[in-house]
Design a protein around this nucleic acid. Sequence first.
DNA 1: GTCTATAGAGAGATAGAC
DNA 2: GTCTATCTCTCTATAGAC
Lengths: 212, 212
Amino acid sequence: MATAVAEEIKPNSTKEKILTAAIELMAEGGYTGASMRKIARKVGIRESAIYNHFRNKDEIFQTIMKNLFSNPFEDFFIKRPIEEYAIKGKAYLLEYAATIKLLTFDSKNEKFFRIILAELMHNQQVRELFMQYFYQENIKKLSNAFFIMMQHNLIRSADPILMAQEFFAPLFYYRLQVLLMHIDNKPTTALSTIFEKHVDFFWESVATQESF
Amino acid sequence: MATAVAEEIKPNSTKEKILTAAIELMAEGGYTGASMRKIARKVGIRESAIYNHFRNKDEIFQTIMKNLFSNPFEDFFIKRPIEEYAIKGKAYLLEYAATIKLLTFDSKNEKFFRIILAELMHNQQVRELFMQYFYQENIKKLSNAFFIMMQHNLIRSADPILMAQEFFAPLFYYRLQVLLMHIDNKPTTALSTIFEKHVDFFWESVATQESF
DNA sequence: GTCTATAGAGAGATAGAC
DNA sequence: GTCTATCTCTCTATAGAC
């Protein structure tokens, strides 16, 4: 989760190489797809050597989760002061969507998203993180922003939480679509401007006459 | 896919029992989670006996996919004549959302959705079916409907495909949310009316003055 | 910290008796 | 059509030498 503190891991250490290899393999084949054998082979050591750095396979997975969920980029995103930005109205939403777009097309974040989705049906802990991160945190932040926009009469009044979900859901949907295309090496040109188009459409849907 | 013809399988036959057991186990643990050993144990036969009914494990999976994607309920849904219904405007969308809601809370369809999601990152064939079914088919149908609604001036004019995606994405998002809650035995009361609320919100977003 | 060697479990699949 | 027996593979993990 976003509050988790990333473990200190020395660059270029065997431990770091193991993690990098594991992330790569788990993005491709999930938890079970990344066997200790494959990880070891990818790093260039024997399987038994891994156990000098991690107690077991699960500890590797835990470390990856911790580090991925405390990505500084995402932290920055989460911690922006909503109150000042929300009154910008559409500009705020555009910035929000642009950040999701960046995450979507960023290689490291794509791997992260892929691992999460690969394990979503298999691992309760992943589901908890997923719900907290992709639902609660984002929805909470967005609904606050929409509430402020309503107060300033920038948008029509409605349930802020519903509005937040309605705004967020397509972003999630488009991110998934991009991921699926990338996995099968299909072009995503048709999706290159969809995040902006979503904001345009949404703003047209909620903006009051005076703010439009 | 929706056009696939479901294989004839005699009720109460061993073959049918194998499939039922496999669906159950795959919904819980995906393809790898449903081992031939576990399937055999659940049916009450030996593993080797399964091979009298299916060439291998993959053939079991293929049969399940074929049958799930040719669900008569879904077929009915797909094959409704859009032209006549679309002019009903909001009523059409409500009916559409109600159908998704039914699928969401139907036990068999939930298992189907769960298997699909569990294998989405692991199996290209599943991704193809997913894209075709959850994206192309639904978006195509919806964009046709929106196009008709625009022609009748029921809704504001916009890109029908974008509008279809914007309408569909939240439904997908809410369906996923319900599934995740169900997996961990959490209550879905907060989500019981979200499908209707989505249509309300959406209609308010696109309806023209005269149709509202 | 890395190696060899090995244990022990579970997987998919086949041969052949009945 | 089901059974027992077995093969072969892959997996996680540990013991102990260097």
